[in-house]
């Protein structure tokens, strides 16, 4: 299995950076993509874990490709689509696209081109081979909740703790 841990300088020297996108812009793109995945996932009533898996795929994908080569919202939709399948909470591609349309503005949605479904489907293969079919991701959220329940403290404070994590 490939190693998904990176050193700071590797992260800074990402494909997008080499392609002329400065770090702060890349960080913004990553945040926007992640937020979009969570928002679309929540609207589709997906579990948080599914969204989180999608976000992980998204970040991994852009460790190999530049944001210039692959428009971020298409990639994000595709990550959510694949995460849905892997986490056994599948959503139809066309439903994901429909939701995307409600979240994104016209210019952002134009990234999807004339045939959004085909666009996402094709990207799925690229995504799969980029992340080397390493699909299993483990999230800390279940553990976090367990720990939080064990902490004997003010309930509100614990709730805040969990939300911040």
């Amino acid at each position: 299995m490939p190693c998904w841990y990176y050193e700071k300088k590797e992260i800074k020297n990402s494909p997008s950076y080499k392609d002329g996108i400065d770090s702060s812009t890349e960080n913004r793109y990553r945040r926007e993509g992640s937020r979009f995945i969570v928002e679309a996932g929540t609207k589709l009533k997906l579990r948080y874990d599914t969204c989180a898996t999608g976000v992980v795929y998204f970040h991994r994908f852009y460790m190999f490709h530049s944001f210039k080569d692959f428009p971020r919202y298409v990639t994000a939709s595709c990550c959510l689509f694949l995460a849905g399948k892997v986490e056994e909470t599948p959503k139809k591609c066309k439903d994901i696209i429909k939701i995307s349309q409600t979240i994104l503005n016209g210019k952002q949605f134009a990234q999807f081109g004339n045939d959004p479904r085909e666009e996402v489907m094709t990207l799925e293969r690229i995504l799969l081979q980029t992340i080397k079919f390493d699909l299993q991701t483990e999230h800390p959220y279940a553990f976090l909740l367990k720990y939080a329940k064990m902490i004997k403290a003010d309930k509100e404070k614990v709730q805040k703790l969990v939300q911040m994590a």
Partner: peptide, 16 residues
Amino acid sequence: TRVPISSLREINILLN
């Protein structure tokens, strides 16, 4: 040409 969920499931399971 597509990657159906059943294949994905098996790839994922067998790989791990």
